[in-house]
Design a protein around this nucleic acid. Structure first.
Lengths: 209, 209
DNA sequence: GCGGAACTTGAGGGCTACCTCAAGTAGTAC
DNA sequence: GTACTACTTGAGGTAGCCCTCAAGTTCCGC
């Protein structure tokens, strides 16, 4: 894990490793083979470890920018004039991104070390996202008995569920999201059992290796 | 894979292997380590292979009875006087079982060889289950624009989504199922994008190794 | 209580993955 | 153009998994 300005070849290899990592994580998730990433970057695995030290560091470096891009989108969603529309558009975007990138999908429900760039970005995003939910509830559009974690997990579930049929029915997730959104509207709600999932529970449950 | 009447010790070991397999598959899914299963049965892995030949045969022998039990329950659900109530109770049961048994969960969305006991049971169950769905739709309770596969995947998704928080919030799946069921009710459903998932698509997408 | 078949074992070959490190290679600063 | 050293490599140790098979052990019918 060098810190002084990198040599030209090293800089090139580092960039290639990050590109390969993003590709492979997107296809195979965060537990994908590091050997495969090195292979795709045209480099030996020793080089990968020279740059990143361990899997977690590589995941963080590869995924953080993606999470940061997501944070920007949550912020934009908050600016939408209609609270319900803003929420729906954002959840759809989230599902779209998750469909296209398994690494991103997994990072949404797993926790990296607290001092990682990814987790710092997520913390910012979560604050906005909670506001997005609260705003839709305050407007009377979103049922009041769900937490941000509930909604997030539901979207994640719709994506996961349709993963298997993706090759044959690439837009199946849109249907499932449609059913969910109907279930989330305040004007159709029947009372839910138990209490809403709180962030602490969710966080405690989802820590990376 | 012997066929003549088994010797006493062999019968005992076979039973132990099946018990261990059910336990391990329930905890870790159908890709669990066969070495671990042999270990837990107090037997070497060679014995496991002597009895079952390969992983698929063991999965089939271990899981088929569970699927057959499920089929009985679908048949019972069809006898429920209220189509919607019958469906809801059955989906709840299905989710309960999936929560308790990861092997069962996976066998719901993966396909074993067509001549396996498991697949033969599933075929019977699916026929009843499709009728259960159709009946609820005919009664005007279930939205007409979802297929049996859609509903099955949605339930599966609710279970999967809450897997991570199970230790801390064991009943989280009930809330998610609640949201789904609200989304599945026919009254005030908003139209879904795309067409319903058909069984052929789902089957083609989900074939075991 | 013995012979032979049924069963189990232990060892092992092949694979993939993780991660390490001494030794060699090649940018870069001068 | 040389010398320094950051960087890369190749080889390798560990570990887990899959599955096979010859040799040894245990049951069971007679």
């Amino acid at each position: 894990m060098p810190s002084t300005p990198l040599r030209a070849d090293a800089r090139r290899n580092r960039a290639r490793l990050l590109d390969a990592a993003r590709e492979v994580f997107a296809e195979a998730g965060l537990d994908a083979s590091l050997e495969e990433i090195a292979r795709r970057a045209g480099v030996r695995v020793g080089t990968l470890y020279h740059h990143f030290g361990n899997r977690t560091a590589l995941v963080d470096a590869a995924i953080a920018p993606r999470v940061e891009a997501w944070v920007e989108r949550v912020e934009e969603a908050l600016a939408h004039p209609d609270p319900w529309e803003g929420l729906v558009e954002h959840l759809t975007l989230l599902a779209e991104w998750q469909t296209a990138d398994r690494g991103f999908t997994e990072v949404c429900v797993r926790t990296l070390p607290a001092d990682s760039a990814t987790e710092r970005a997520k913390a910012r995003g979560h604050a906005c996202y909670a506001e997005l939910i609260a705003r839709a509830q305050a407007a009377g559009a979103l049922r009041p008995d769900v937490s941000p974690a509930d909604v997030g997990l539901l979207v994640w579930a719709a994506v996961r569920a349709t993963e298997g049929v993706r090759a044959l029915a690439p837009d199946a997730w849109r249907r499932h999201l449609g059913v969910l959104l109907d279930g989330l509207r305040a004007d159709r709600a029947t009372p839910l059992p138990g209490g809403a999932l709180d962030p602490a529970t969710v966080r405690a449950a989802m820590t990376f290796p």
